[in-house]
């Protein structure tokens, strides 16, 4: 595209647009840095990887036992189950309720994240998603940095959109691993939810906040 002529009536439109684009890119970088810092502070492992394949390799190295990988639209689109299986992860193929009371691993994508608190937001109305994120010892979450929002105020809009209509909804904010301080106020990780949360940042998964 040729550089806009200052006298051209579209000049303002051009500049505004490119500024906005710039801002989005800057924000993504800024929010990503903030998100990584915040999520680590609450005890999550965060790693930026170059490709989904690298993420799969990481999961393979760390995963324990059988892995619950709910069939979501992103899982299907990116063939995540197949990739994990091929890499040697024991992907559970039955209904997750049959995976025992303490399965080893859960792997999911997410909808979006909150930079200031290190939170991952996951629409979990499908029961399989809920089981895969509440029962396992380890939870691996694949995140597209383009979906990192500044803070939970920025989440008001997508959260409101999620609740349009009357369909049943279950949305989880996950900020680090499960924790308690109920005995002598000593912070202890791994009370009822996952003991470990691994967040893998992979570009290009999906920038759609309503898809997971």
């Amino acid at each position: 595209m040729p550089a806009p002529n200052k006298h051209c009536i579209f000049y303002r439109v051009y500049t505004i647009k490119s500024r906005r684009q710039c801002m989005t890119e800057n924000n993504t970088a800024r929010y990503t840095a903030r998100f990584i810092e915040s999520a680590r502070r609450v005890g999550a492992e965060v790693l930026q990887v170059d490709s989904l394949q690298d993420a799969v390799t990481y999961i393979k190295d760390k995963a324990k036992g059988t892995a619950l990988v709910p069939e979501t639209s992103l899982v299907r689109r990116h063939h995540l189950r197949a990739l994990l299986s091929e890499a040697g992860v024991d992907v559970f193929t039955e209904k997750f309720r049959n995976a025992g009371q303490m399965p080893g691993t859960g792997v999911t994508f997410c909808n979006f994240c909150l930079a200031d608190s290190g939170t991952v937001v996951l629409e979990s109305t499908d029961e399989e998603i809920r089981l895969a994120t509440t029962l396992p010892e380890l939870h691996f979450i694949l995140v597209d940095p383009a979906t990192i929002l500044e803070d939970n105020l920025a989440a008001v809009e997508p959260m409101t959109t999620f609740h349009q209509g009357h369909a049943p909804k279950f949305i989880a904010y996950i900020t680090g691993p499960s924790r308690t301080a109920d005995i002598e106020r000593v912070l202890t990780i791994g009370c009822h939810g996952p003991r470990e949360v691994h967040i893998l940042l992979v570009n290009g998964i999906s920038s759609d906040l309503f898809e997971n």
Binding site: S38, V42, K95, R97, L114, D116, S117, G118, T119, T125, D126, E127, N152, M159, H163, H166, A167, P168, K169, F170, I171, A172, Y173, I174, T175, G176, P177, S178, R179, A181, G193
Partner: peptide, 20 residues
């Protein structure tokens, strides 16, 4: 409450979600 920016979980549930 505890000096946390957010708790580990905030769960938003609306209506009769699927079960088994």
């Amino acid at each position: 409450a505890t000096g946390q920016l957010l708790t580990s979980y905030i769960t938003w549930i609306r209506g009769a979600v699927p079960v088994s």
